[in-house]
Design a protein around this nucleic acid. Structure first.
Lengths: 342, 342
DNA sequence: GCCAGCTCCGAAAACCTTTTCCGCCCGGGA
DNA sequence: TCCCGGGCGGAAAAGGTTTTCGGAGCTGGC
């Protein structure tokens, strides 16, 4: 059933088992399996045959021990449950998987103790590097000293200037969003944001304000800060329509807020996008495509951010360390909730 | 700056470095650090001091090599992007994290080749066990033979009867949902499901049908199969109201479908929950709490499922293997969209 | 026939830790 | 003073792999 390799519990075949079966030394078996020179093709074939027969799988622990590199990295998230860690994680996993690197996943659940604990374990396992994924774009404390492997911070930058961090360009994103609305011919643009305590919210607002000002336009009303929820979107939109009924576009702090805004607009009989254009943030696929009309949104390219972080970590491992904060461009994904004024 | 341990690139301190600094042999150093007997307390203190000074961290690779177990497990998902893998993964990570087990995360992206590749890598890294997380509750092929570590299948059961699988009890969930609606005094209950190709959809329907029959009730209309989207929910609800306006409760295949149903009910002037109760499935927090009214939903307890899978894997590693399919109970989370008829 | 040179293979060290077993030294008792 | 025992520390092996270096065997040329 389980093939000639024997069933579960049988000790895994080792290189010297293979060598014995092939009638050669371990050294020769190693060279044969690794494609080294100075092995006769007949011998090589015999070794390969023996290895296949025993379903030999080289022990990476031994290889790593000898090589001084484990071919593993640690991915340390502070909040897996959040929506932003996952795509980053996927991008990183993707980039590493291609390069034969295995990934240790650790979730600190926002707890510093737990984080130290995980870091300690990873160091002990001799990971070649570490990616630290934050749960918001606010700067976070650097890892404790004594971690002498390369570290790349993703999403949340490190507070220490000497570290390398990869973050989305939220200022540019705010600018981009406004530019899209302007391109749609809108000029009375309001901004319903999310939680003011998040730098992501403030940065987007700053970018948007900059773009408006450059276009010589005044924002409609104050920027409305609140929470990242549909409920807030509904409430803030109601207030907005009461105070500034002339509004012809609403930029929202997140897709959820935008959903709430859409709800209120529909209740008040405003057509989207004909009367009012609505734009979200984060491009959360199911939310953005589930709404009526589908939601134009800004995508932070988080998967690409994860891939970039992974590549940066590769470089750092290969002794080409970088430092500072690198920002990644966002992109506007256009759907039905924004359209040119006719 | 980086402390006495030396900066990045300096070879990590080894046990013999510690021994040398403490003026003892490696054997003694090992015993001292591991709390073994036959070490004088003065000696032990000296060793501990030396270890701290060098910020010594034992090399897990060497330990694993010697011990014959690595203290690592593989978590193999077929679809990380899906909504169901993540909670399972978190539960498992949680259960393992408590022990001293590290988790390798691999995403096969639904590709069998990629999956084999990952399994091969994990075997080579000598993981002590494997959890395979499927993307739907439909049975999936077992891992290839030749994997001689324990494997637990989560969410999607293995097709091979000898394997151990942990899956949510969707039949029971369907039953539970109906029982809740009955308890609310509803008797004209329709079911708008998701994609018929998913056993999750069919199982929930079967459970719901059984509960209705036991209550001596006829379902309102046929079960409507479609897709797992808001759009489908809106469309199906429209049809339902046209054909069976007497309906007083709608059980939906997912929270997204339920959102769509809520939309249509609102458009048609039906009050929820006064006129019609609506119930979702999956208890997707942001979706369920973002809607108006908030959505009663069935939670599959996926995090608990992940924890259970992890514990089962522990048992299997400790030579207490189990087999067959174990189902996990679901639970109803009651919110505003269902309430007793007044 | 002998030697040079090339091809192929094997012995051994290295990576780092744990554990077993042995030996040393010191104190106490005869 | 001698012996014994107990307490403490050290040498060495084991775990599996890679690499280096040396050596064996064979062929071809003189």
């Amino acid at each position: 059933m389980a093939g000639p390799a024997g069933s579960r519990g049988a000790r895994a075949a080792t290189l010297s088992d293979v060598a014995k079966l092939a009638g050669v030394s371990v050294a020769t078996a190693s060279k044969a399996l690794n494609g080294r020179d100075h092995v006769h093709s007949r011998t090589r074939a015999r070794v390969l045959e023996a290895a296949a027969q025993l379903s030999f799988s080289p022990n990476s622990l031994a290889q790593s021990l000898l090589a001084g590199r484990s071919g593993t990295v640690g991915l340390l998230t502070s909040d897996l449950v959040g929506r932003f860690s996952l795509p980053i994680l996927m991008g990183a996993e993707d980039a590493f998987g291609a390069g034969q690197v295995s990934v240790f996943l650790c979730d600190a659940r926002g707890d510093a103790i737990r984080e130290r604990h995980h870091v300690q374990a990873l160091v002990s396992r001799r990971v070649d590097g570490l990616i630290v994924v934050g749960s918001s774009t606010d700067p976070r404390p650097a890892l404790a000293d004594g971690v002498d492997v390369p570290v790349v911070y993703a999403y949340a930058p490190s507070e220490a200037a000497g570290d390398l961090s990869i973050v989305p360009d939220n200022i540019g994103a705010g600018r981009m969003a406004i530019e899209h609305l302007l391109a749609c011919g809108r000029s009375r643009i309001a901004h319903i944001s999310g939680d003011r305590d998040y730098s992501a919210a403030r940065d987007r607002v700053a970018g948007a304000a900059g773009a408006l000002e450059e276009a010589g336009l005044e924002p409609v009303g104050e920027v409305a800060y609140g929470t990242w929820t549909e409920g807030w979107g509904r409430a803030a939109a109601g207030l907005l329509l009461d105070r500034s009924p002339e509004v012809d576009a609403v930029l929202c702090g997140s897709d959820q807020v935008a959903r709430g805004v859409l709800d209120t607009l529909r209740d008040r009989g405003r057509r989207v996008p004909e009367d009012v254009a609505v734009m979200g943030f984060d491009n959360w696929e199911v939310v953005a495509t589930g709404s009526r009309p589908q939601l134009t949104s800004v995508d932070m390219n988080l998967e690409e951010l994860g891939r970039t972080a992974a590549r940066a970590l590769f470089d750092a491992i290969d002794d080409e360390p970088a430092r500072g904060v690198r920002t990644m461009d966002c992109r506007v994904v256009i759907r039905g909730s924004t359209a040119p004024l006719s």
